[in-house]
């Protein structure tokens, strides 16, 4: 979401404790942040818990926000870190894809109508959730959230080159999953 002067004043209103301002910030950012958390964790109720914690933390520590980035970017970082903490705490661990054979399929640019577009979006979302947590996180942060590999490395405490490698593997695996999905075969 683009940072605008209107949002800056809204943040200042939050700092002054105006309750309506808090609600408005939630209205502006909750949907996008929820989808960030949902993509990373794969579970709606976990994503909601993380969203609640993230907003509460953000509202409680507004004095630490110095407008060095947009508020949305600052909030997203809080959400991402909380998602990472959750994934890291799971017994399955934070796994990445191992070495895999390169997946060689012709990369044709499809032409979708609106209905097919919605179906393709659904397919991609479901396929992303089938990736291991670590690979899914790298792919999500790069492809959907706009972080570069240096930032991803800092968030996940991995090297930039590891992030790049994991992203390439995740992308290849995703394509494989999409090709193998029943919806793809129906086309």
């Amino acid at each position: 979401m683009e940072f605008t002067d209107q949002h800056r004043e809204l943040i200042e209103q939050c700092r002054r404790g105006e309750r309506n301002a808090f609600r408005e910030v939630y209205r502006l950012y909750s949907k996008s942040m929820f989808n960030v958390a949902l993509r990373m964790t794969g579970m709606a109720h976990i994503a909601e818990d993380i969203l609640q914690e993230a907003f509460t933390d953000a509202f409680s520590t507004l004095n630490k926000f110095r407008h060095e980035s947009t508020f949305g970017a600052w909030l997203k970082r809080i959400v991402v870190f909380k998602c990472y903490d959750y994934l890291n705490s799971k017994s399955a661990g934070f796994e990445f894809l191992e070495d895999m054979e390169s997946f060689d399929q012709p990369d044709q640019e499809p032409d979708f109508n609106e209905e097919e577009m919605a179906r393709e979006v659904k397919r991609i979302k479901e396929a992303v959730q089938l990736l291991p947590a670590g690979s899914r996180t790298v792919l999500t942060l790069y492809l959907f959230e706009g972080y570069d590999h240096e930032e991803i490395g800092q968030i996940l405490n991995i090297s930039e080159s590891t992030s790049k490698t994991q992203y390439m593997r995740a992308r290849l695996k995703l394509k494989e999953l999409l090709t193998q999905s029943p919806l793809h075969n129906e086309r």
């Binding site: 909750s30 929820f34 989808n35 949902l38 709606a44 909601e48 969203l51 919605a118 979006v121």
Partner: peptide
Amino acid sequence: HQFDDEEPSPGLW
């Protein structure tokens, strides 16, 4: 934008 189509439950706020 189409990938951000999910919404949190109404009671979350």
